[in-house]
């Protein structure tokens, strides 16, 4: 029973992180119909930005905020420099450019900071010791609560932005009917830039949350991107709520499989589950019922 509780809690924290990565992928997919494979690498880069600030003894909350701001900037730059010229070209091209970026950005991180793993402390010295419940320590710390809390705050903010602000309305309009939006005076290009910036911010958050759990290295986000992508596909690429649910489900699933069936079944089990779910719901759990795109 203790094991079950620990596996659940462990799965929840990792699941929240996968959800943040998935949210970034969903935002970009909705806006530009691109799977951004560079999402993880960009998040690694923003985490290194925070790490270099920490090296200079700058307040850890400032470093945390700096990583998020760096996410906004990197996302915007990526869209303007690398994606903008490719709209209207064969649809695989921007995807392959993000693969190129993934390779390039990880090399840049490796060139600047080396490939040695580094430990990153949680911001503000939030404790990583397990919370005591009765006489047992749970596999759940103040930092785990922080992980879940910050991902939920991010989700809520995004939801508010989309539903209740004019920027959100413009973003939705640009994503689903760019021509109409343009006619209505929306500066679609600028809106897409904002979309990429926000998505990369979500990734940057994931990077800052996972670094204290798995250490920082140029390839830190590779598995996160893989699981985040699986989570986004599971939840439905058009649905931010799906990203959250998909992320949590992936986290729990991988934790249970690893704990009960052994680590070599983690990916095998995850793959089978993904295939099973998609066989029933080909566009993910939260797919909007919609007509065939022509």
């Amino acid at each position: 029973m203790t094991l079950f509780i620990d596996l659940t809690l462990n799965g929840l924290s990792y699941g929240a992180i996968y959800a943040a990565v998935a949210l970034g992928l969903v935002l970009i997919w909705r806006a530009t119909r691109v799977i951004n494979f560079a999402q993880g690498a960009l998040a690694t880069l923003t985490t290194y930005v925070a790490a270099s600030l920490l090296d200079r003894s700058i307040n850890s909350w400032v470093a945390f905020a700096a990583a998020l701001v760096a996410g906004l900037v990197f996302g915007a730059v990526t869209e303007r420099v690398f994606m903008r010229p490719l709209y209207g070209k064969p649809e695989l091209n921007p995807v392959v450019v993000t693969i190129g970026l993934l390779i390039l950005v990880e090399s840049v991180a490796g060139a600047i900071w080396g490939s040695t793993d580094r430990g990153i402390a949680p911001p503000g010295g939030v404790s990583q010791s397990g919370i005591i419940l009765g006489h047992t320590y749970l596999d759940f710390s103040a930092f785990d609560i922080f992980i879940l809390g910050s991902v939920i705050v991010l989700m809520v903010l995004m939801l508010v932005l989309f539903r209740w602000t004019s920027l959100g309305l413009k973003m939705r309009a640009s994503a689903f009917a760019p021509e109409v939006a343009r006619l209505l005076g929306v500066r679609v290009g600028r809106i897409l830039t904002v979309g990429w910036a926000l998505a990369t911010l979500a990734g940057a958050l994931a990077g800052m949350l996972v670094a204290p759990l798995v250490f920082l290295s140029p390839n830190m986000m590779d598995p996160m991107l893989v699981y985040g992508f699986a989570a986004a596909v599971l939840g439905g690429l058009d649905s931010p709520v799906g990203a959250l649910v998909g992320g949590i489900l992936s986290g729990l699933g991988i934790s249970y499989i690893g704990g009960y069936l052994g680590s070599s079944m983690e990916t095998v089990g995850a793959a089978l589950l993904l295939i099973a779910v998609l066989s029933i719901r080909p566009e993910g759990l939260f797919a909007a019922a919609k007509a065939r795109r022509v």
Binding site: D222, P223, S255
Partner: peptide, 24 residues
């Protein structure tokens, strides 16, 4: 006896579940 995979995603979910199982 617990293990993890030596592949890229092997440590992608930490070692919490393995250590927890050893404790149990």
């Amino acid at each position: 006896e617990q293990n993890y995979q030596g592949t890229v995603q092997g440590l992608g979910a930490g070692l919490g579940s393995q250590v927890s199982a050893l404790q149990s």
